[in-house]
């Protein structure tokens, strides 16, 4: 579904991603872990071109998106949901408008369809009573669940998560991870950058270890956590587990 070849990204002299090859199959739940500053966010943001790769190609559903025109990129992004560490809900809009804005503006649904779909999703995550509320009235965990719903309303083929629970108070992490698990069970293709090793172990179909802009090791969660081979990974796991 996503095919990455020779991906490089530099900010000036800072070579953040170095010649990365990776392939993500439909239905996979790929979890990316690694030390701070290793390029995890940058990798994820290259996948939907929020960052422009310096070199390399990314193919999504058979289309080379790195050479696509702006208009096509916008269309491709409709199929790639993204969830941010800081939620990035639209603060001036109600929860309902947050969810329906993009599908309606992009003429994918009528206003009524979009509202109906939004209510369905809100019921699914248990936040139907918040439809008329504003983001500032919600807890962090609720905000992040709404952010996930907002992405889902676009019927994406893949969901990208960049540390979705890192900005949350500990007691709210669970509700967001539960929703992500549900999503995984429903067959969604997911790429998740996270520090939640429990989630990686339980939900991941594959775990990648990233350091200094390279993917140094990847394996099934079982092997990854019990028999790490790379020394950097062993060191990393000894610190976080």
């Amino acid at each position: 579904m996503i095919d990455v070849k020779g991906l490089c990204k530099s900010f000036g002299d800072n070579h953040v991603l170095v010649d990365i090859d990776e392939h993500i199959e439909k239905g996979e739940k790929v979890v990316i872990v690694g030390p701070s500053g290793s390029g995890k966010s940058t990798f994820l943001r290259c996948l939907n071109l929020l960052e422009r790769p310096t070199a390399g190609t990314i193919t999504f559903e058979g289309r080379d998106i790195t050479s696509a025109k702006t208009k096509e990129v916008n269309q491709i992004r409709q199929k790639m949901g993204m969830v941010f560490q800081h939620f990035n809900l639209f603060n001036h809009l109600t929860i309902m408008d947050n969810i329906t804005l993009a599908p309606v503006k992009l003429k994918l649904m009528s206003k009524e369809e979009a509202c109906q779909k939004a209510m369905e999703l809100l019921h699914r995550v248990g936040l139907a009573d918040k439809a008329a509320a504003y983001p500032a009235q919600l807890s962090g965990g609720q905000k992040q669940r709404i952010a996930i719903v907002r992405s889902l309303a676009m019927n994406p083929d893949v969901m990208l998560f960049d540390e979705p629970t890192s900005a949350l108070d500990p007691e709210m992490v669970g509700e967001v991870l539960d929703l992500m698990k549900q999503l995984a069970d429903s067959g969604m293709t997911m790429v998740v950058v996270t520090h939640e090793m429990g989630f990686a172990r339980e939900v991941g179909s594959r775990v990648l270890f990233m350091a200094d802009g390279h993917i140094l090791e990847q394996n099934t969660p079982e092997e990854f956590f019990t028999h790490p081979k790379n020394d950097r990974l062993k060191d990393f796991l000894s610190k976080v587990l």
Binding site: N48, L50, T70, K71, N74, Q75, I76, R77, Q78, M80, G81, M82, F84, H86, N88, L89, F90, N91, L101, A102, K105, L106, A147, R150, S151, M154
Partner: peptide, 18 residues
């Protein structure tokens, strides 16, 4: 306005102008 607002909009497929 927080830069994340633009990123969130673009990640949903909205154009820069929208």
């Amino acid at each position: 306005v927080d830069a994340g607002q633009m990123e969130a909009g673009r990640s949903l497929g909205l154009s820069w102008g929208q």
